[in-house]
């Protein structure tokens, strides 16, 4: 505007676009393309995925005999490879404590018995909604030993100030592998 460089005819019929404005439009579109490419790279090359469609579940199926949610907990599938089934209900996770050795790959399966809950493990990419009628699943690798809080991050009611959504959490302990003999 301070430097009038004339008005450039854009491709849009009869729509006058100022030179600087046209440049800004190009910058904006370029930026969007870069963001898109970055997300594609992160989700494919680095494998950072969001939950998808896994399986539905009916209320009477959760606790039925043979259902992995009837007897939830950690199972070792192969050395360093685990799966864990978790039940979310007002206002706790079952199990609420999980122990795995450092370097493990672990797949979480989680569903809700009553209302909507959330499931987030601090300092990881594990972040899922937990809905009645659906099983949420994500996989991650724990490279660093330590204690990780797993918290409910969707409002799910409360009994009072000491028990409720705000106290619904569990812990995951990533333990140093004992030195081999």
């Amino acid at each position: 505007m301070s430097e009038p460089t004339g008005i450039e005819q854009s491709n849009l019929p009869n729509l006058h676009v100022d030179w600087y404005e046209a440049a800004w439009i190009r910058v904006s579109l370029f930026m969007m393309v870069i963001f898109l490419l970055a997300v594609i790279a992160a989700s494919t090359a680095f494998g950072i995925q969001v939950p998808g469609a896994y399986s539905r579940i009916k209320p009477d199926e959760i606790m039925a005999p043979g259902s992995p949610f009837a007897d939830p907990g950690l199972r070792e599938l192969a050395p360093g490879k685990y799966e864990v089934y978790i039940r979310a209900a007002t206002w706790s996770f079952t199990p609420s404590e999980i122990r795995i050795p450092v370097g493990s790959t672990i797949t979480f399966y989680i569903t809700s018995l009553d209302v909507q809950h959330g499931f987030k493990i601090m300092d990881t990419n594990i972040n899922m909604m937990v809905l009645p009628g659906q099983i949420s699943t994500l996989t991650t690798i724990f490279d660093k030993p330590g204690t990780y809080n797993l918290i409910c991050h969707e409002y799910c009611g409360a009994a009072n100030a000491t028990i409720g959504h705000h106290t619904m959490y569990g812990q995951l302990f990533v333990e140093e592998t004992p030195p081999s003999q």
């Binding site: 904006s28 579109l29 969007m32 963001f35 898109l36 997300v39 989700s43 995925q49 969001v50 939950p51 998808g52 469609a53 896994y54 539905r56 959330g118 972040n127 899922m128 909604m129 937990v130 809905l131 659906q134 099983i135 949420s136 699943t137």
Partner: peptide, 23 residues
């Protein structure tokens, strides 16, 4: 994005369209 039961492809499509509404 973090909901179960919605396939990743649909979430991805909606991301592209969300960039569209950012424009």
């Amino acid at each position: 994005y973090t909901d179960p039961g919605i396939p990743q492809g649909w979430k991805f499509l909606h991301m592209i369209l969300t960039y569209g509404v950012g424009f």
